[in-house]
Design a protein around this nucleic acid. Structure first.
Length: 458
RNA sequence: GGCGCCAUAGCCAAGCGGUAAGGCAGAGGUCUGCAAAAUCUCCAUCACCAGUUCGAUUCUGGUUGGCGCCUCCA
């Protein structure tokens, strides 16, 4: 499998440290608000990576943190009139609900920054001993000038940053690129004791502490959005490698951003949709499918029109699935279907092996649906619907789609459907059409077949 | 100012040296109640210019247009 590594900016053959085990760390959310569509992308991308690695036979150790202490947390907690801890609990819960609806497998470890203060202090101490950190009036800073490899991930030079700095240089810092490891206590803010006095950890150090605690000083894959490359990931490398003297991460993977009208979707620009907002209009599976339609490193423009397109495409897959489920009982071993199935898997894997090309893999899935349908139409006796179904299920499982149970209908819909069957018996077409439109309006589709009427979720 | 990325049909999107996957929309066929659903078929020479090559959408240089990072940000 080839993976694009931000460190080398090239496609590299993926070789895990342990032959059959892969360790992955993905930067999680700061839990001060609901996540938006952009935040959902790394969730979906790295969950799909995880699923695919499992499909390939690897054991995956997946860690995602929660940043539950920083300026935004404190401000928001004050605004809502609750403690930082209560705020974190509230939005972690919301996050996990969204993740579940996106069919994201819960991480093996979900560490919180505030529960790892001890580990954080240990790293800062070690950095201080090695001369990579210095103390100022408002905290402890990392000395980027002292770390020779600073900039190796983002390709930035400290000198360039000086000249291009858009923000006033902090007087306390030796260089503009230096960053806080520990922030001294301010009145009214949560704080913890440390060798440098009471205070709280800087943002970057948390991820170093938590990733190394759960995955070791060197691990396989670290993921996140492209915006994290600098400074966050650059700083993580400096701290971690500075403290341990060992390589921190072998493969850095970064997903592209979601745009709205060709502009980055972000909280600061205010042009974002939260996941709960999307969930009002679409099942979150549609969002997952939509994102899988584009390579994870590309930017994607988000719109409800595009979501509708994705919804239609997803429906096509569900239609095939439902149909094959109905036929599966009649499945007979078929060499032809076996061949088609194998060919599909090959194409699917080729694409996934090529830096997680989910769009290409999806293409293979759609082609499979068409070809298998063709076989089932032309020679249902010989075609193996059971095998078609299991292939579809296996591959869609890797992508984390087609997980909804479309056969369970609400009572309300059932009633309408029954009425419609009667109307059709009476040849009351006007009433039948009216009922059909009602059902469609409620998010379901109706299909008339030789055996009768089929109603399913849209 | 520094550093990157991108430009493929009405829309979305793979491919990245040998003559364009897939989806949505659209058109036509089958089926049907004149319908719907389902299903099948059809629908592009890859922003522009100049090079390299037997051959370029794919490589190089340039032009134009768009986006991102350099500040919290997925």
């Amino acid at each position: 499998m080839k993976i694009h590594n931000t460190l080398s900016n090239t496609l590299e053959e993926f070789k895990p440290i342990n032959e059959d085990k892969v360790s992955i760390y993905v930067c999680g959310p700061t839990v001060y608000s609901y996540i938006h569509v952009g935040n959902a992308r790394p969730l979906i991308v790295f969950d799909t990576l995880r699923r695919y690695l499992k499909y390939k036979g690897y054991d995956v150790d997946f860690v995602q943190n929660y940043t539950d202490i920083d300026d935004k947390m404190i401000n928001r907690a004050n605004q809502e009139g609750i403690t930082v801890n209560e705020l974190a609990a509230k939005y972690i819960q919301a996050y996990e609900k969204d993740a579940k609806e996106l069919n994201v497998i819960p991480a093996d470890s979900k560490p919180r920054a505030t529960e790892h203060i001890g580990e954080i202090i240990k790293i800062i101490k070690s950095l201080e001993e090695k001369g990579y950190a210095y103390k100022t009036d408002d905290g402890v800073y990392f000395n980027t000038m002292a770390y020779e490899n600073y900039g190796k991930l983002s390709g930035r030079k400290i000198e360039d940053m000086k000249s291009g700095a858009r923000v006033a240089v902090d007087e306390n810092k030796k260089a503009p690129s230096d960053f806080a490891l520990w922030k001294s206590e301010k009145p009214g803010e949560p704080s913890w004791g440390s060798p440098w006095g009471k205070g709280r950890p800087g943002w970057h150090i948390e991820c170093s502490a938590m990733s190394m605690k759960y995955l070791g000083e060197t691990f396989d894959i670290h993921g996140g959005g492209t915006d994290l490359i600098f400074p966050h990931h650059e700083n993580e490398i400096a701290q971690s490698e500075g403290a341990t003297g060992k390589p921190f991460v072998n493969y850095w993977m970064h997903n592209g951003h979601i745009n709205i009208n060709n502009q980055k979707m972000s909280k600061s620009l205010g042009n974002f949709f939260t996941i709960p907002e999307i969930a009002e209009k679409f099942d979150l599976e549609v969002l997952r499918f939509f994102m899988l339609g584009v390579h994870y490193r590309s930017q994607v423009n988000f719109s409800f029109e595009l979501m509708e397109q994705a919804n239609q495409a997803l429906n096509r897959l569900y239609t095939a699935k439902l149909r094959w489920e109905g036929l599966a009982g009649e499945g007979k071993p078929s060499g032809e279907m076996e061949q088609l199935s194998q060919k599909t898997k090959n194409t699917f894997e080729e694409n996934m092996d090529s830096d997680l090309n989910t769009a290409g893999a999806l293409g293979a899935l759609f082609e499979f649906v068409r070809s298998a349908n063709f076989m089932l139409d032309n020679n249902p006796e010989a075609a193996d619907a059971k095998l078609a179904l299991s292939t579809l299920n296996e591959l869609s499982g890797v992508l984390g789609i087609l997980y909804r149970d479309m056969t369970v209908l609400p009572e309300e819909i059932k009633e309408l459907a029954e009425k419609r069957v009667q109307a059709r018996k009476d040849k009351n077409w006007a009433l039948s059409d009216e009922l059909r439109d009602k059902i469609i309006k409620m998010g379901y589709t109706v299909e008339d077949t030789a055996e009768g009427q089929k109603v399913k979720k849209k």
